[in-house]
Design a protein around this nucleic acid. Structure first.
Length: 229
DNA sequence: AACCAGGACGTGA
DNA sequence: TCACGTCATGGT
């Protein structure tokens, strides 16, 4: 097999070399060997587990990832983490408990993540769906049919909570690669997603790491040169 | 002190 | 379809 130069693969190697393994998705509680903060990572507080692809360990952590995916919509992660810690303190990171609690209290708990009116509703809707799954895996179509779950959130949930090999496209991905001419800057989500999935082996660990690296790179670009876009 | 974050929905054309 | 306004807190 002759190695064909691919900007997609080259970028992955470059980012991995530059930033190292990212250890997404961050979780509130890891097993004790990994536990601790990672102050070197942009915007992170805790919960990353670089090199450890064993998570999520149970249904509880699956649900936590889904909540995080909704809460982080157009929102910086530290704000999301505060919201998740509030939910944990209330002991409601559980779809049944979310459904039981008042929407007003839920709004108060997730306030730091912004858009709390919309996100409280989204979390209620998703919790009902999660219960209906009874432990089974959701399909992308099912997720997209829920109010509040768009393409990126659906793919994030499927990739990080359910380990499905679906590439997640976010604003950073769009920006970094459209500048390199891989696709138009206004290309549709599914079009960009297809470019990556065609260029990469269908490997959910690779997809997890790649998306995390693109976000890390995007954050660094913003901090190091705010105007450089 | 604007500007923007690990987006999605509702609306009008 | 598609561009545009709206949603909201917290960092720089």
């Amino acid at each position: 097999m002759i190695a064909v130069p691919s900007p997609v693969l080259e970028m992955y190697e470059d980012l991995l070399k530059r930033h190292g393994p990212q250890g997404w998705w961050p979780l509130l509680e890891l097993h004790h060997q990994m536990k601790g903060t990672n102050p070197t990572k942009t915007g992170s507080v805790q919960g990353y587990h670089p090199g450890d692809f064993s998570y999520p360990h149970d249904l509880h952590q699956k649900f936590e990832i889904c909540l995080g995916a909704i809460l982080t919509q157009n929102t910086a992660w530290p704000n999301v983490e505060k919201a998740l810690l509030n939910l944990k303190a209330l002991d409601v990171i559980d779809p049944h408990k979310i459904l039981e609690m008042s929407e007003e209290i839920l709004k108060g708990a997730i306030r730091s993540a912004g858009y709390f009116n919309q996100k409280a509703r989204k979390i209620k809707v998703f919790s009902e769906f999660f219960v209906s799954l009874k432990g089974r895996n959701p399909t992308r179509e099912q997720l997209l049919g829920l109010w509040g779950i768009g393409p990126e959130t659906a793919d994030s949930i499927l990739l990080y909570a359910y380990k499905q090999p679906l590439f997640v496209v976010d604003a950073y991905t769009r920006r970094i690669f459209s500048e390199k001419g891989l696709f138009a800057k206004d290309a549709a989500y599914d079009e960009i997603k297809a470019v990556f999935e065609a260029a990469l082996p269908k490997d959910w660990k690779l997809y997890q790491e790649y998306h995390a690296l693109l976000v890390e790179q995007g954050k660094n670009m913003r901090i190091l040169s705010p105007k450089a876009k």
